[in-house]
Design a protein around this nucleic acid. Sequence first.
DNA 1: GTGAAAGCGCTAACAG
DNA 2: CTGTTAGCGCTTTCAC
Lengths: 349, 349
Amino acid sequence: MNITIKTIAQRAGVSTASVSKALNGYPDIGKGTRERILKISDQLGYTPNALARYLARQKGHAIGLLIPDISTPIYPEIFKGIDSEARRLGFSLLLCDTNGKKDFERSYVRTLMENRARGIIIAPVDNEIDHILNVTRGRIPLIFIGGKVNDSMDNYVSNDNVMGSRLAVEHLVSLGHRHIRMICDNYRTKTKRDRVAGFKAAMESNGLEADASISDGLHPEGMEYGFHETLRLIDTDSMPTAICASSDMVALGVMKAAALRGLRIPEDFSLIGYDDIQFASLPTVNLTTVAQPKFEIGILAVRLLIRAIEEGNSATRHRKIIEPTLVIRNTCTSPNTERHFPPAQGGSP
Amino acid sequence: MNITIKTIAQRAGVSTASVSKALNGYPDIGKGTRERILKISDQLGYTPNALARYLARQKGHAIGLLIPDISTPIYPEIFKGIDSEARRLGFSLLLCDTNGKKDFERSYVRTLMENRARGIIIAPVDNEIDHILNVTRGRIPLIFIGGKVNDSMDNYVSNDNVMGSRLAVEHLVSLGHRHIRMICDNYRTKTKRDRVAGFKAAMESNGLEADASISDGLHPEGMEYGFHETLRLIDTDSMPTAICASSDMVALGVMKAAALRGLRIPEDFSLIGYDDIQFASLPTVNLTTVAQPKFEIGILAVRLLIRAIEEGNSATRHRKIIEPTLVIRNTCTSPNTERHFPPAQGGSP
DNA sequence: GTGAAAGCGCTAACAG
DNA sequence: CTGTTAGCGCTTTCAC
């Protein structure tokens, strides 16, 4: 038999109500009885039943978090931000790894509803989120984050991708680069479109021509795209003096291609990424990049969500766009006007 | 007002018992009524209250997972294994990031108990786990995983660290190395001790002298240790032809030191890691290493846990030790007998 | 087949 | 201060 407040009540010769009060630190209870109850309670090793409590209180304290894949760089850090802020504010977090599948998203959202989550923070796997809205039906607030965020979503927090690209360009320009190319692995999300737009705008405002390799969407994304596109640029003798990758993963692909062709970074060309994933800071990578404040994004998402929860059903939009920052490491330098391809000394075999 | 089975019952002109039966697919209910109930149920957009259900059933379906830091390589992959297997078996997972703190561990375990988790998988932050056992008091089963596992823990799953080191040594020896050194960043866990023991045993059985740099525990671990120790070896002119790092993170530190001193890997010396974290496969890292089957470890942990849950309170120990495998990438090659330090061509500036 | 009734463990008025 | 009394929403015998 489980020990419940009833057990304690009997042992203490009081009512369950008193036990409840004592355990929850209510003021209206005699100091003597309280202490007696507390003592008995832990003599018995009593463990309150949170489920029963929530049922009675009619109010859960859990919020959900949907992420496409926790093993993808950037998400663990966002998770940490969300986790710490949620716990700090007295909420508990239910993490759901959606494996990049809409089916999973739908089913997890349902489960969260059934468990009476108060709200959900979602890094959707797709631009389209009707399958989610169909199950929440506006009953609990949703805050969107991540690379698929777009303006069709009511509430979200993201970083200023236009500004981020500008930071990258300005850095390169200040180093003396004039021939800069962006390599963007997809053009189907607002995030990537903004990065491209920011790049172009910044180039133009510097009186420079904005070259860009933009995936037609038929090729694999991320590292793969960076790799193949860079190979193409090198082999076609159309390398710029600097490359802006649309993400750190793309940048990694660029590095791989450079190594394969014996080009050194930053001696032969400069490279700048976007996101500042963990990989970027590794000694063998050392990528200069535009950093999204991931931890902070998590914190803000929680705050927006909780505000929305407290407001109840209001039509207010909750949005927050935060500023990225430039993290300078070792992949950018001034362009070497004397360089030639292939360079005198090779890199990896 | 929330819609509950009572609402549905009224609308359908039946009892709540019947609604419950219909919704849960019990056989003892008329086909007609069932369908009527089901129809009304989703007309109303009914969402069952999982909390109430568990209360009534007196049986949760949640299992907990304690991890020191989800942003530390290796854990996301283990998580994925656990997550997929748990869901497959009908359990839901509650992830708790303990931030490497015992306090957090204790408090999360308590929370899990309160939420009536059926069992917990724990990657403890320390060898010592009394603070955990004190709160679970044997009421639910615990399975331990991760680098702190040791034989004082009743149930666990780990990889065979002795064997892993042997794999590394055999590989190096088969390449022709005879002067191999292990660099181990701590000697306080069974995991690391086994890796060292495996290394020594394998060296000896090959008739080789087993050199090892083992941290005195006063220095930082991981990359830091690998970095400083390698620097010391180089500067002291005592570099072996190959290094076995006690973890991939240590290996990364070794690489950093090598780059700083202008040594190339594997041209100037071979390097092999342990764990096969994501970083290891990056193009700029390409580390040959001993891989722990992380996803599989997760799966096994869940199976052991659920078996333990089903067995109820039994004194049976649940342990599983699985075999690591060698992943050959590009940091090992045959020793170059003509090499000299420093080499003719430098690496990074 | 169907429903009445008794909980599951806890909270929350409301009396006393 | 303390106890009584109703639930919270759902499940589960056990009669009918």
